[in-house]
């Protein structure tokens, strides 16, 4: 266990974290509404099913998964907003849900879909309040504000009401507000959501520089694989509340599989192809053919099996065209999800 406030060893620890949400269930129509009034029924949803991992200080980590996979719930537990139903979380040596002041001084949570600054005030007024809340010395505050507003190119908007800013500018202000106190741990929940390519790129670059310069530990959730590939040295993938991958993103693509693409004169089914090549159906994807073209068939397999698969195909079919495609992180995650769905 880490001593409160020290940073030797893992900075974030999650041990068998489970979180269950209970909510009332409303039936359909008027009957459902009346039943809810008289005798409400409750349902339980297990958002996290025993998630465990440890993160090192200064690391940049990606947390990915489909909607409802449990990413935001995990961030809320780690930042101390909600407690786990069972299991243990420790961040910077603190138990997050106890929310000691020292813990709150050293973390930050940015939610792309939730504004933290005050809409009717210019950002500079909100930053001034945050300076007082976090007791940032005036000299440091001025230096940081100048640095951050230059990095994010929002200096000229500091005196504009937040609600009058564009989404991208607002998000940049949110980010400045979240890190003015130089937190040791930053939780970023989809910070690039809704941003255009340029704004997202700027934000990404800023996060990279900040992580390198200040050695802050960052957990980033995003549906944008560009964010993850370019920034994160480690990726955690959640599916239905379970951690299904924990490792380097290049490990996910390299140590995983390659995609062999072939076009055949014949049009065999996926089952037949599976029978011939001994590749599971789940690893075979038959694309819809364009007009006048034959169907492209993708085999997601380990590299050392490619030759054997081609030999098996040639014995049975006529290969018109073939190639090996680089796997993107996105396609790997897609495959992990599809495999999971088929299994369940």
């Amino acid at each position: 266990m880490i001593a409160g406030g020290t940073s030797s060893g893992p900075v974030i620890q999650a041990r068998n974290i489970r979180r269950v949400f209970r909510s009332s269930r409303k039936g359909e129509g008027l009957k459902g509404a009346l039943k809810l009034l008289a005798r409400p029924e409750y349902q339980e949803h297990v958002a996290l099913k025993g998630v465990s991992f440890e993160l090192e200080p200064g690391s940049f980590n990606g947390l990915i998964g489909a909607n409802g996979a449990g990413k935001t719930t995990l961030l809320k537990i780690l930042s101390g907003l909600i407690p786990p139903t069972s299991g243990e979380a420790r961040v910077l040596g603190f138990e997050p849900f106890k929310r000691p002041v020292e813990f709150r001084r050293r973390i930050s949570l940015v939610m792309g879909q939730k504004a933290q600054l005050w809409w009717d005030l210019p950002a500079i007024d909100a930053f001034d309040l945050l300076r007082a809340i976090y007791e940032i010395p005036l000299k440091d505050y001025r230096e940081r504000l100048q640095l951050l507003s230059e990095l994010l190119e929002v200096g000229r908007h500091l005196n504009t009401q937040i609600r009058r800013l564009s989404l991208g500018e607002r998000m940049k202000m949110e980010l400045i507000g979240a890190i003015l106190h130089w937190p040791s741990v930053i939780f970023l929940d989809e910070p690039t959501i809704g941003l255009d390519v340029l704004a997202a790129q700027k934000l990404r670059e800023f996060l990279r520089v900040f992580n390198e310069r200040e050695k802050a530990t960052i957990i980033l959730t995003s549906h944008n694989m560009d964010d993850i590939e370019r920034l994160c040295s480690r990726v955690l993938i959640l599916r239905d509340g379970e951690l299904i991958f924990d490792g380097a993103p290049n490990g996910l693509t390299q140590a995983g599989h390659s995609r062999l693409r072939v076009r055949l004169r014949e049009t065999p089914s996926a089952e037949e192809l599976s029978h011939v090549t001994a590749v599971p159906v789940t690893a075979i994807q038959v694309d819809e053919a364009e007009e006048g073209e034959t169907k492209a068939i993708h085999f997601t397999v380990k590299q050392d099996r490619i030759v054997a698969i081609l030999q098996a195909l040639m014995q049975r079919f006529h290969i018109i065209d073939m190639g090996i495609e680089e796997q993107s992180l996105e396609s790997v995650i897609h495959r992990l999800y599809v495999e999971g769905e088929l299994r369940s």
Binding site: W118, A126, L129, A132, E135
Partner: peptide, 21 residues
Amino acid sequence: MKLEWRLAALKNGFQDATAYR
């Protein structure tokens, strides 16, 4: 009792309340 953030919160609250005269 920390006074600085309390005064800042008062100031910020006043700015917010009077944003629309």
